[in-house]
Design a protein around this nucleic acid. Structure first.
Length: 304
DNA sequence: ACATATTCCTGGGGGC
DNA sequence: TGCCCCCAGGAATATG
């Protein structure tokens, strides 16, 4: 799943591939779901002739600055955006193709169709996705004090849930939250209000460290991620907990456990990340054992 | 206002 | 071998 290091890797590889300065001679919308704003026809018409002036990023949003307007892309779970030769086979689930003035194409492919584009006048365009407008600081700029303040506002929330909230900090997803909390030696289900200042600091440090290392390895390719040239990342080789259930903790050898926190599959070391190593904390982890969401209603199963 | 559950979507994997 | 169900999860939306 593209999170901050993956989106940043796409940004850098698109720049290295020479996308900046290219003009879009045609935009083909092959599946309307991928274009969120404006309507596909206007989207394609407006983009025709636009020059790509620069490529930026905020959180998990990729921002293609045009000579007029900005094209915002979000890859969500399985989106891929890459430079391609026009004769390359068109893979299934290719939803948007931008023909460039150098004969190449910028292609967007997304198996699950969660990702897509917003074409905006500028950053303050009211059509901008709400998630982009409410985005919190980049992890680089996040200090222990920011975590402390956010924890004070959400004292009962699990720390994992807080870090996944893009309004608190931008760009984190399931992989890097699990990885950072392991490095910080904080149990993912710990209530925010129970964390110490020392732990706020460890979390801020761990986020910077793990994101930096992931970026240096061009992101994590578990299944789907590819960069702007179609290449996978390498950070999956260095993951300490994510998708390592039952494998030995790289710090202490204890088998990595998997549970569910904040509605997400959550990996952690039961020894390094104690849920109870805490004076008078009432926020004992209630969900540390491998829990099922209780199969509550039945609505989800009847959905299909 | 806040927190959690559901929804979208498809491919892959487990169970039988 | 094959079918069915479930699962993965970012973020919008719905519900508690």
């Amino acid at each position: 799943m593209p999170e901050l290091p993956e989106v940043e890797t796409v940004r850098r590889t698109l720049i290295e591939g020479g996308l900046v300065g290219r003009r879009i001679v045609r935009a083909q919308v092959l599946h309307p779901d991928a274009v969120r704003h404006p309507a596909p026809q206007e989207f394609a018409q407006t983009l025709k002739g636009r020059r790509i002036a620069g490529i930026g990023r905020r959180g998990k949003y990729l921002l293609l600055a045009l000579d007029a307007g900005v094209l915002v892309a979000h890859l969500r779970m399985t989106g891929r955006l890459w430079l391609s030769l026009p004769e390359a086979e068109e893979l299934v689930h290719t939803h948007v193709v931008f023909d460039l003035d150098d004969g190449r194409q910028l292609r967007f492919r997304d198996v699950r169709r969660f990702g897509g584009f917003h074409l905006l006048q500028d950053a303050s365009d009211p059509a901008a996705p709400q998630g982009l407008r409410e985005l919190g600081p980049e992890p680089d700029a996040l200090r222990a004090r920011d975590i402390r303040d956010a924890c004070a506002r959400h004292a009962r929330l699990a720390i994992k849930g807080l870090l996944l909230d893009q309004r608190v900090v931008a760009g984190l997803g399931n992989i890097y939250v699990d990885e950072a909390l392991h490095r910080a030696r904080v149990h993912p289900a710990r209530a925010c209000g129970s964390l110490t200042q020392r732990e706020h600091g460890r979390i801020a440090d761990a986020l910077r460290e793990v994101l930096g290392e992931a970026l240096a390895n061009r992101g994590t390719t578990f299944l789907d991620f590819r960069d702007g040239t179609g290449e996978p990342g390498a950070f999956q080789e260095f993951l300490r907990v994510y998708q390592r259930e039952g494998l030995p903790c790289r710090s202490c050898g204890t088998p990595i456990a998997k549970t569910r926190v904040a509605g997400r599959g959550t990996h952690y070391c039961p020894k390094c990340q104690k849920g109870d190593g805490f004076p008078s904390s009432t926020a004992r982890t209630r969900t540390t054992t491998r829990s099922r969401p209780a199969k509550t209603s039945s609505g989800s199963r009847r959905a299909r």
